[in-house]
Design a protein around this nucleic acid. Structure first.
Lengths: 355, 355
DNA sequence: CTGAAAGCGCTTACAG
DNA sequence: CTGAAAGCGCTTACAG
């Protein structure tokens, strides 16, 4: 009956049904434009031959992809283990579903993010940590591909979604200092694939400014040489958090508080400390950033900054869809509120001021 | 200089550079086939006009998408909150990255999974919980779209990746019974979008058979009327787990052990119990299934079945890529080992046999 | 090394 | 209501 060859095309259905390609196309997309009889014959012919219109050809003809892309900030393996990123994706995904779009996760292509963007088959992109002046920005502009960046540099020609990172960091650092801590280790986010030293407004840098401001009010500095404030960097994974915990436990001048820029890292630290009989918060306090769900699961529950990751994804993709539909954005820079969440992992200590 | 109109096409570069479209195409894809001079002129013209070859047109011409799809088993919002699913996606994603493919997350299209599959712009699909005889299977076959299913029905013409669900369930249930528990509440997975009563080999059903076998050995049954074994169903979310915990706490004949088919649900229960001063495992034991990372974070740590979710995604997508490349699969049905993980959430109780 | 032309499988303005 | 034909932007077998 039907040869197991290749998929039938619109041409086959036209020939077999006795109608034109135009009619076949209408039967599937605008049935009202042809007679009921034509529709029936065409549809049953299609059914008989196993014809399903080729989505690629259709999209190509219609000049659209019906998909938006999410540029993974790290290799896919890391990105998918980062609950914060996952929450962002969740927000984006909900919006995609609402508009009948798919969500394409785009990993760097043979190490190259730029190449990945050049060949991304999507109608728009959500990126994380995008800075003005990066190569990818040029590629997106050249391709006239609409995009929105989350946790990137607010800039006129680059729609972005952020919290007030500097202020949030200032507040959490103040909280720690008010609890009496004077010996603190900061675990910074590694500047990810998108970032480099030349960009002044990256999230880690903005946060450091917030820390610095709070520290200064207490007569301390990020760059103290007496070792009361130490700096570390870590990947955004549980494993790296544990590793950081290990390094901290070996510090000659062990801090009374660890301040991580990411909850998952903070949790890794707590896990390491617990496994090595360092009591949290009695021996050492730990605070995080993000307020991922796991922050409530861990004992002691984590003191952290709540930033609505899902909401970020939500806002960013709603804005992106507006751009895709040719609408103009009300405000190109969207800022979402954050909240300081006090739980049990941060403890008051006798301030060294009191000695 | 360059009008802010629309994107230049290969035709524009050909005209502007004085070469043919063929030459332009070669300049980008097979530079060795044209002279160095031609290449330079063409590439610099492209650069000047801001030309980046249209990925859609290229893919269309090459009859490929360079993307594989993951059919979300639940609405995107739920799927992305299910750590087990996320681990599967992670495994798939790593393989995609390795082959230079993107990963398209496909939510049901206006409620219809079938429509979503009809129009999915991908070279192959990974599905979860696919059963023989489902509509989607027909669509995929009609489209001649290669696919692999995870946690579906092992079947000749449907490559699948599974653990031995029945045996795993048998073992974990036996463990619970050996610890003396005789009053047990089972929280089953809801049969998701893909499944329905007509399919006998779904994962929840296979697991129930395992439970039943173990129970029978202890003179009990899934369908006991004396209420010693009760059944519940829940969505695979933390919230639903909490809700289940609530319902269980209200049971007139409160069980000594809760057996959830998913860790996230088990953790939800534990959270609810803790919040309501029901001690785990002293007042009630809880066991899960999956061994997600969170199972180690929660206190008490969860006794559960370890199934390598990432490995499932990994195997499934490696098989899919083989199919996409026209290779034949060694074995169409892949089974991965599981492990019973004993932690603190399951406690020994005096068996009612001893009364 | 180079280019004219056919082809990928649809959509749709246009004419009948 | 119906269909011939142009067009979407590439690739590539073929001839020169």
């Amino acid at each position: 009956m039907d040869l197991p060859q290749k998929r039938p095309t619109i041409k086959d259905i036209a020939r077999e049904s006795g109608y034109s390609k135009t009619a076949v196309s209408f039967a599937f997309n605008e049935p009202s434009r042809i007679s009921a009889k034509a529709r029936d014959i065409i549809l049953s012919t299609a059914d008989r031959l196993g014809y399903i219109p080729d989505p690629m050809a259709r999209n190509f003809s219609l000049r659209r992809h019906l998909s938006i892309g999410f540029l993974l900030p790290q290799i896919i393996h890391y990105s998918m283990r980062n609950p914060y990123t996952l929450q962002v994706i969740q927000g984006i995904g909900s919006v995609c579903q609402k508009y009948g779009y798919t969500l394409t996760l785009i990993p760097p292509l043979n190490e190259s993010i730029t190449d990945a963007v050049r060949s991304a088959a999507v109608d728009g992109l959500i990126t994380m940590g995008m800075q003005v002046g990066m190569d990818i920005v040029d590629v997106m502009k050249t391709r006239k591909l609409p995009f929105v960046t989350i946790d990137g540099t607010p800039s006129e020609d680059m729609p972005s979604v952020n919290i007030a990172d500097e202020e949030a960091s200032y507040q959490i650092m103040r909280l720690v200092l008010e609890k009496g801590h004077r010996c603190i280790t900061i675990i910074s986010l590694s500047e990810d694939a998108f970032e480099s030293d030349e960009f002044e407004a990256s999230v880690p840098k903005r946060r450091k400014r917030g820390y610095e401001r709070a520290l200064k009010e207490f007569g301390l500095s990020l760059y103290d040489l007496d070792g009361s404030v130490t700096n570390m960097v870590s990947e955004c994974t549980l494993e790296d958090g544990k590793h950081a915990g290990h390094l901290i436990s070996k510090l000659r001048n062990r801090p009374t508080c660890v301040m991580a820029m990411s909850d998952i890292v903070a949790i890794g630290c707590i896990l390491y400390f617990k496994e090595n009989s360092i009591r949290v918060p009695d021996d050492i306090s730990v605070v995080g950033f993000d307020n991922i769900i796991e922050s409530q699961l861990i004992t002691p529950a984590l003191t952290t900054v709540d930033q609505p990751a899902q909401e970020k994804g939500y806002l960013a993709s709603e804005a992106l869809f507006r751009m895709i539909n040719g609408e103009t954005l009300g405000s190109t820079h969207m800022e979402i509120p954050f909240t300081i969440i006090e739980r049990q992992s941060l403890k008051e200590v006798p301030s060294s001021d009191e000695y």
